[in-house]
């Protein structure tokens, strides 16, 4: 009986695994095929890998897009981690009368869909374009600014800080650390897993962000990877071999970040902290 149950579980899990892995497999196979083979649904590896890659790097010019996406994702991740953790720490560790109200307002801001604030945001960035070109329309700064630190990450850090042993803060103070010192030398190392989880999520969000970069970036040389891929698919006769190659390359960094931090990620999402 137990064996039958086991067989059943394995069959079910294998099916689920195939369903979720198949698109990736198809993507990987497709980068070696030419476009008309991809549309025909060919599942065998072909001989067009080098051709697709050459097109991608020479005529599509994927490198600048990779550089832009990396710059944006890395800066966004660093800024988000720093600001959100500072805020989360402050909200949880320090006592103040109005903090819960402020926190609730922050949470409310999570409920406003981005599409609703997009037009006003565009207007705001338009109005500073002349005085602060680094953050104006068509600048990488304008992509980073609205997405660096969101209410969600402040909430995320505050929730995780609840597990943080407050005695450590006291101990630090007694040993003569300043508030900043406590944060950087005690809080940060202890909360490593939370940082890792937040880093993965921010990085992925930023890397895959589409709508805001789309409206705010205008020059082709500032384009990010998702915008580039969107362009590739816009032709009346898209080259699916090349599109698949671009998608594979676009997937690699997020996959890499995930695998590097996977161990911490799971721990961070569970909210456990090793005191």
């Amino acid at each position: 009986m137990k064996n039958i149950k086991r067989v059943f579980i394995y069959v079910f899990l294998s099916l689920a695994a195939i369903v979720s892995i198949f698109p990736f497999l198809w993507m990987l196979v497709s980068i070696t095929n030419k476009s008309s083979d991809v549309t025909k649904g060919r599942l065998l590896p072909g001989t067009h890998l080098i051709e697709n890659m050459t097109t991608l790097f020479e005529s599509v010019d994927i490198v600048p897009a990779l550089v832009n996406s990396t710059i944006i994702a890395v800066i966004t991740t660093v800024v988000t981690l720093l600001l959100a953790s500072l805020a989360g720490y402050g909200f949880e560790i320090h006592r103040s009368r109005g903090k819960d109200i402020v926190f609730n307002i922050l949470l409310l801001s999570m409920m406003i869909p981005f599409a609703a604030i997009m037009v006003p945001l565009y207007r705001m960035f338009g109005s500073i374009s002349d005085t602060a070109p680094l953050f104006g329309i068509d600048s990488l700064g304008a992509v980073i600014l609205p997405t660096a630190t969101t209410a969600f990450f402040i909430f995320f850090f505050r929730q995780n800080t609840k597990m943080f042993p407050k005695d450590l803060v006291e101990a630090g103070r007694i040993d003569g650390l300043s508030e900043i010192g406590v944060f950087f030398r005690i809080y940060m190392p202890t909360m490593k897993t939370t940082y890792a989880a937040a880093a993965i999520i921010t990085f992925m969000n930023s890397w895959n962000n589409y709508l805001w970069p789309l409206v705010i970036l205008q020059s082709p040389e500032k384009r990010t990877i998702p915008l580039l891929i969107s362009n590739l698919g816009s032709s009346y006769s898209p080259d699916y071999g090349v599109i698949m190659s671009a998608i594979v390359i676009a997937t690699l960094p997020t996959a890499l970040v995930f695998f590097l931090m996977q161990k911490h990620f799971v721990a961070g999402m569970m909210g456990s902290v090793k005191g």
């Binding site: 997009m118 037009v119 006003p120 565009y122 207007r123 338009g126 109005s127 374009s129 104006g136 329309i137 068509d138 709508l211 789309l214 409206v215 705010i216 205008q218 020059s219 082709p220 915008l227 969107s230 362009n231 698919g233 816009s234």
Partner: peptide, 24 residues
């Protein structure tokens, strides 16, 4: 000459034109 996907052009035009600023 700038290449954008058709849906992207629509999105960009709508956002830009309804924000009232002609920048970009």
């Amino acid at each position: 000459i700038i290449e954008n996907a058709q849906d992207d052009i629509i999105q960009k035009l709508n956002t830009g034109l309804s924000s009232g600023t002609t920048k970009g």
